[in-house]
């Protein structure tokens, strides 16, 4: 007799546990407010990207096209993937000294792992991580970026 009651109580307990599980999914079915999906391209305007989000490396320029990069190559050394290459140039200062300045700050977005080490290494805070995350392009060449704008100059007084 004991086995028979056990048999039926097993069935009862099993069915009860199943019904409890169904009540959880049933709750979500009846409460569509719980839906957490974001409709991405549509919600682009209201999308909140955290301030610290590491999207891509950029070099901020002032209004009169000046940046803070001295071309010291600290970021190039800090980068673990070799995605930064500093192409420098030598000019002659008015005092007649030869001086190294930055020609191109080449940044290969395709190789970047967004570890932020370059930003930390930069002694003049010339480069920062921007929030832009929409990097898709049709041409791989577009991912190799030159961060300093053409014709831009180093901000006065940075190099001291």
């Amino acid at each position: 007799m004991n086995e028979v009651t056990e048999y039926f109580s097993d069935i009862f307990k099993g069915v009860r546990s199943l019904l409890k599980g169904m009540s959880v999914t049933g709750y979500y079915f009846l409460h569509p407010k719980e839906i957490i999906t974001q409709q991405y391209p549509e919600n682009r305007d209201v999308l909140k990207v955290p301030e610290r989000f590491r999207g891509e490396l950029v070099m901020p320029h002032t209004a009169d096209n000046q940046h803070r990069c001295t071309g010291c190559s600290a970021c190039q050394l800090a980068c673990p993937n070799g995605s930064i290459i500093i192409v420098s140039d030598r000019i002659e200062t008015p005092e007649g000294k030869k001086k190294k300045i930055i020609d191109k700050h080449v940044y290969n977005l395709a190789m970047c792992t967004f570890c932020n080490l370059c930003v930390r290494a930069c002694p003049t805070d010339a480069i920062v991580m921007s929030n832009d995350f929409e990097h898709a392009t049709y041409d791989r060449g577009d991912l190799i970026k030159i961060l300093n704008q053409p014709g831009s100059k180093v901000l006065e007084g940075i190099e001291e």
């Binding site: 999914t25 979500y28 079915f29 569509p32 719980e34 839906i35 957490i36 999906t37 409709q39």
Partner: peptide, 13 residues
């Protein structure tokens, strides 16, 4: 759609 709503998503949209 049913499975999407149960799974707190929207499903095909």
């Amino acid at each position: 759609k049913v499975c999407a709503i149960i799974q707190v998503r929207l499903g095909p949209m």
